[in-house]
């Protein structure tokens, strides 16, 4: 780890101010992605702005139509929330299978989606549920938020304050973990409800999380695993590595999608 300055602001406004003043500074929430990168000396931020002392950034609220998870809420909190389990069980279950217990107790939703690791779980839920990302200055629709590998629509001095999920009629997430890292090698989130029918795939896309138009179309006609029969995923835009070829990932997208639809009921 290289040396860095450390700030612990008490409000979002103060954090934004610090961030705007120093283009080389980095926000740190749970640190589950950033700390390993720092330890390996792969990043050299001038300062870390720790969001851990901002009380407004933690909490879950559920209305008749939405679940809102504030940015610094941990995966463990989402997984354990009785309200989330009732409103969007698929979201609680997704959160309960991120990383391991230590990661879930540190890692946060805001950190996960702002980092936009192509193998992270949360981006698929945000995209498939048609969530709205609330930031320090605006709201961003899920479809506009994820722009590529490790990149988002966030401005350099913008902070994710909450994610607002519409409550679906049906939803489920099924992942095939990478055997070594246990990140998603393929993860498919399916949802049906006010957001329409949406299918988001994580872990497999060479450019990160993406929606699967052909599957959405088929499921919109008939919400059943059988409806996905024969729908293939073009392999050329998928990741290939020592764990799985793009063809295998394309195949697994089909299997995981069917299982997700079956699970959603």
């Amino acid at each position: 780890m290289y040396e860095f300055a450390y700030h612990r602001p008490a409000s979002v406004a103060e954090a934004v101010k610090l961030l705007a003043a120093d283009p080389e500074a980095k926000l740190i929430s749970g640190g589950m992605s950033l700390i390993p990168v720092l330890k390996q000396r792969l990043a050299r931020p001038s300062a870390l702005i720790d969001l851990g002392a901002i009380p407004d950034l933690v909490g879950i609220s559920v209305s008749a139509t939405t679940v809102t998870v504030k940015g610094r809420t941990t995966h463990a909190a989402v997984a354990a929330s009785a309200e989330v389990r009732r409103a969007i069980p698929a979201l609680a279950e997704l959160a309960s299978h991120i990383g391991d217990a230590q990661v879930r107790n540190r890692g946060t939703i805001g950190g996960s989606i702002a980092h936009n690791d192509p193998t992270a779980d949360y981006p698929s839920a945000v995209l498939a549920l048609g969530a709205t990302v609330h930031t320090s200055r605006r709201t961003i629709a899920a479809d506009d938020f994820f722009t590529g590998l490790f990149t988002t629509a966030l401005e350099p001095d913008e902070i994710v304050t909450a994610v607002e999920f519409p409550i679906p009629d049906k939803a489920a997430y099924v992942k095939f973990p990478n055997p070594a890292s246990r990140y998603a090698m393929v993860g498919v989130f399916v949802a049906k409800g006010p957001m329409g029918v949406r299918v988001a795939v994580t872990g497999a896309g060479a450019k990160g999380v993406f929606r699967h138009a052909a599957m959405e179309e088929a499921l919109a006609k008939s919400w059943s695993p059988e409806a996905l029969e024969g729908i293939t995923t073009p392999a050329e835009n998928l990741t290939t590595d020592i764990h799985a070829s793009r063809e295998y990932r394309a195949h697994l997208i089909g299997v995981m999608a069917k299982r997700a639809v079956a699970k959603a009921g």
Partner: peptide, 11 residues
Amino acid sequence: LLSGSMMDYTM
């Protein structure tokens, strides 16, 4: 070495 960490070497 492509399998040079626990992210890529499956224990």
